[in-house]
Design a protein around this nucleic acid. Structure first.
Lengths: 117, 117
DNA sequence: CAAACATACAACTAATCGGTTGTACGTTGT
DNA sequence: ACAACGTACAACCGATTAGTTGTATGTTTG
């Protein structure tokens, strides 16, 4: 696990650790939305929402595309998947633990058959 | 999505948004470790590590079991999977978007065959 | 051109975060 | 009994966060 990967993981998990940002992700994964269209949905200032969008963009969870005076945000599903794969990696670590426990059980039951249930 | 679920999601993503805590998760998913055994692995005070463990425990990512004077921490893979399922849910939103786009293309090509590539 | 709109960013504030040290308390081993 | 160990928690500190307001800049439209 490289230093850069860890920094990226920090940014991704942190970006998703806020309900407003998760809600923005749902909207921009469903389709393009301008920053002001998004801002209209929440009970906070335009600047606050714009900052949330900037956090998501920096983490790579969404990209922006200029269209006239609007900035259209679109969710990047690949970034979402990269987070999912980090969790899968964690789950693999756990599987290794279970596999080791199973080996121990197999050892006991083959060398000491009396220990079977 | 209930208020409680969002609060839980906040706690889970926030807990994972720190590299020390992710590293602790790798260790405790691989097997039980006492808090001091964990603390010995990092270049920070015992109290700092103990707080990281407490954050993970509050989020439900690990559980502790007393054994004499030690507190053995063990990773809970179900919590990891619950985070993964939140991401799957996000990906489903994106799939819906793609499905809608596909429908539009199908409509165009069946009603206006001239528009095909 | 001027007014309205969409965005970006700086400066500020209260709250939270990640770390520290110090203290208290139960458990273990001599 | 007592010293060492393992843990928990409070109090503090500097950095960061999530929000605010205000200002500047580019874009569209009347």
């Amino acid at each position: 696990m490289s230093e850069d990967d860890e920094e990226r993981a920090d940014a991704l998990f942190h970006a998703l650790a806020d309900r407003t940002r998760r809600d923005i992700m749902r909207r921009v994964l469903a389709g393009e939305h301008s920053v002001s269209a998004l801002a209209a949905k929440y009970d906070m200032s335009f600047a606050a929402v714009q900052k949330h969008v900037a956090v998501l963009e920096k983490a790579g969870l969404l990209t922006k595309r200029r269209n006239g005076r609007e900035q259209l945000a679109s969710g990047d599903v690949r970034a979402v998947r990269s987070v999912a794969s980090m969790l899968t990696e964690l789950e693999q670590v756990w599987r290794g633990r279970i596999a080791r426990i199973d080996e121990l059980i197999a050892f006991d039951t083959t060398t000491h058959p009396d220990q079977e249930d």
